[in-house]
Simulated scan of single mutants.
Amino acid sequence: MPSVYDFTATSLAGEEIPLKRFEGQILLIVNTASQCGFTPQYKGLQELQQEFAPRGFSVLGFPCNQFGHQEPGDAREIEQFCTTNYAVTFPMFAKIDVNGSNAHPLYQYLKDEKSGLLGSAIKWNFTKFLVDRTGQVVARHAPTARPEGLTKEIEALL
C-alpha cells in the first residue's frame, strides 16, 4: 500500500529528502505562503512542532505560490522569513505546485487520499493533511482550521 514515505521532496537548502526519513512519525503536511492572510498560522504550527516533536511528530511545510502569488520569494527568502518572523524549526521544503499538471507527486497522492469538501484540488494556502505513523493520510483540514485546533486529533494518534 502506498504511503507518504514513498515520496521524495527537495528541502529549502536544495537537498533531496526521502520522506521515509519521517517513517514512524505523525506528520502534519501543510502548503504555506509568506504573504497570506493565514500566514500567522506559522506560529501555531511551530507551537505544535515544539510540543509534540519529542513524542514523534513533525510539521512539514511546502511553500506554494499558486494562490494569489502569496509566496513570491526564493528559497533563501522563504527560510529567512520563516526563521525571523516565526522561529520555524520544522522542515521546510522547496516551493512547489500543489494543483495542476506540475503538482508535486506527494500532493497528487495527498489529494487522491483525502478529497476536500469541493473536490480534491487544494483551494488555498495552509491546507493541512494529517498523516499517521504508517504514512497513511487520516484527515484533511481547510486553511481556516487553526493549528491549535488539531491538538486533540494529533494527541490521539500519538
Rank of each mutant, 00 (worst) to 15 (best):
M1I: 10
P2E: 01
S3V: 07
S3G: 14
S3W: 03
Y5H: 15
F7V: 06
F7W: 05
F7M: 12
T10I: 12
G14E: 07
G14Q: 07
E16M: 09
E23A: 13
E23D: 12
Q25E: 12
I26G: 05
L27H: 01
L28I: 02
I29H: 01
V30A: 06
N31M: 06
C36D: 08
G37A: 00
G37L: 01
F38D: 00
T39F: 05
P40K: 06
Q41A: 04
Y42F: 15
K43M: 07
L45M: 09
L48T: 14
L48Q: 06
L48H: 06
F52T: 02
P54M: 07
P54A: 12
R55N: 14
G56R: 09
G56W: 02
G56A: 05
F57Y: 02
V59Q: 08
P63R: 09
N65M: 01
Q66L: 05
F67W: 03
F67E: 07
G68I: 02
G68S: 11
G68R: 01
G68F: 11
Q70N: 09
P72V: 02
G73D: 13
D74G: 15
D74S: 02
D74T: 00
A75W: 02
A75I: 06
R76K: 14
E77A: 15
I78E: 01
Q80C: 13
Q80I: 08
F81A: 11
F81W: 01
C82Y: 08
T83G: 12
T84S: 13
N85V: 05
N85W: 05
N85P: 01
N85E: 10
A87R: 13
V88C: 08
V88W: 04
V88P: 13
T89L: 06
P91I: 02
F93N: 13
I96N: 05
D97Y: 07
D97C: 14
S101L: 10
N102M: 04
N102T: 15
N102P: 01
H104A: 08
L106Q: 14
Q108H: 08
Q108A: 13
Y109E: 03
Y109T: 11
D112R: 10
E113A: 15
E113Y: 04
E113I: 01
K114L: 07
K114F: 04
S115M: 09
G116C: 15
G116T: 05
L118C: 11
L118T: 09
S120T: 04
A121G: 11
I122N: 03
N125Y: 01
F126V: 10
T127C: 06
K128H: 06
L130R: 08
V131W: 01
D132R: 04
G135S: 12
G135V: 03
Q136F: 04
Q136A: 09
V137C: 06
V138F: 08
V138R: 08
A139L: 03
A139V: 04
T144A: 06
L150T: 12
T151A: 13
T151M: 03
K152R: 11
I154M: 08
E155I: 07
A156T: 12
A156M: 04
L157E: 10
L158R: 04
